[in-house]
Design a protein around this nucleic acid. Structure first.
Lengths: 236, 236
DNA sequence: CCGATAGTTTGCGATAGCGCAAAACGGGAC
DNA sequence: GTCCCGTTTTGCGCTATCGCAAACTATCGG
């Protein structure tokens, strides 16, 4: 098994407060794997045998209803963990993870988790921190879904994506992985049709430039204004 | 300061894997307090100086937007922790906590947390577990808000409340604390008007019996059926 | 006992956004 | 270069749900 370079991951929040030797020991328990674009890393409901740290690429975590409807739980960016079912006491994955780009991950067996946090309590503390942050973000999302209209929610979603995975261009910010109207709809609780209409509108105002699975924010500030606009303020 | 009886809290998930002596030590750092009905325990945005364990009563955690709109994040039942801002690395409370009934809580200073989890790592692991569970529940809520209509969401919300804080009656289940139409609206992302209409409808079908801040599920199974009904199946 | 107050019910438009359908488009495979 | 398929765009009617307004009613304080 190829050795993982500790220097690549040492600075991650997950490993804050972990000594280099400890990190070495932790990494020895992991293996790495590559997932090609559009391949599944794990499926909702499957036995949670592993947990993951994304090194390169992007992963979409999505949850499906019994009737087949989907929502995007989040996009995982490099340096983030995912598939932490075991940390929260679940034996099955609550969502499906798909690589949206060619991706490289570190994989630990779920069974290693109890031992790891016993030996390295900071791991638990750090994980608690990130899970807590995600909980907050979820609450924010619920708040938005409850109080804002679709256009504002889409604006917020794009701004978040831009912040998390935006590539700065000379003029604007490009979202750095393939993302469809459908995906955005599933992030904001609407339909791809409505998202398409909204983006078309923004495009004609010069706020964005977009195409097939590709979105560039040409006027991020303008989008912020949209995102913060109260439901009835000002004419379109 | 009155001593807290360890036997009251020893069985809680939070203290799983904690020895009696350790528990004693942990409890020595806490004080207890009583909050009368409708009093605030902490306010969103305030400095997170403490975290809490609810012993008796019920607490509503709610988040407010800049424009004053509110959502109910959750209802806290006895035995649950709340106000864990520090565990997730926040210095301010992300929500407001109000006692909806006369309530008794244990209070630890935020500053004690790092020391506690260092001495008793199970605390961190247990907290991670509960926070993880809440994250899952949030995702479920997002899924519902994205894919179900209001009536189903209200049905789900009532069923959850009944499970968490339901008092079994000879015929039915009563939600064991005061809760208004407005509260339910804020849990489900709708308006009190719509909730009122829905409950009126259910009442005339004998599914529920309700009044001022009081709801009794007379036919829990019937509500389950409603909750699971797909958007278009069957006539009203 | 009575009035004030907070919560609830109900009616009636208005509308944001859905759902369906069809056409246009772009990119990759061969 | 051309064909095919997944994505996007757009039109149009529909309806669930909101928003406002007004009436109603328990409950509590005095």
């Amino acid at each position: 098994m190829a050795k993982v370079d500790t220097s690549l991951v040492a600075h991650l929040p997950l490993f804050a407060g972990v000594t280099p030797e400890a990190l070495d020991e932790i990494l020895r328990e992991a293996r790495s794997a590559r997932y090609p674009k559009n391949s599944a890393i794990f499926e909702q409901g499957a036995d949670a045998q592993s947990f993951f740290l994304l090194l390169h690429g992007h992963v979409r975590a999505a949850k499906t209803t019994p009737t087949g409807e989907q929502i995007v739980v989040r996009y995982v960016a490099p340096g983030e963990t995912f598939g932490l079912a075991m940390a929260i006491g679940a034996t099955r994955y609550p969502a499906t993870a798909i690589a949206v780009d060619d991706s490289v991950v570190l994989i630990w067996p779920t069974s290693a988790w109890p031992r790891l946090i016993e030996r390295f309590p900071s791991l638990a503390a750090n994980t608690l921190q990130t899970v807590g942050t995600r909980l907050q973000e979820s609450h924010t999302r619920i708040l938005e879904m409850s109080t804002q209209q679709v256009e504002q929610r889409v604006a917020h979603a794009l701004l978040r994506l831009a912040k998390q995975s935006g590539k700065k261009l000379e003029h604007g910010i490009e979202i750095d992985f393939p993302i469809s109207r459908q995906d955005i709809a599933q992030m904001t609780g609407t339909t791809l049709h409505t998202v398409s209409r909204i983006l078309s509108g923004w495009e004609s105002q010069g706020l964005v430039e977009s195409g097939r699975q590709r979105i560039i924010l040409r006027d991020p500030h303008g989008i912020v204004v949209l995102a913060e606009r109260s439901p009835d303020s000002g004419p379109a």
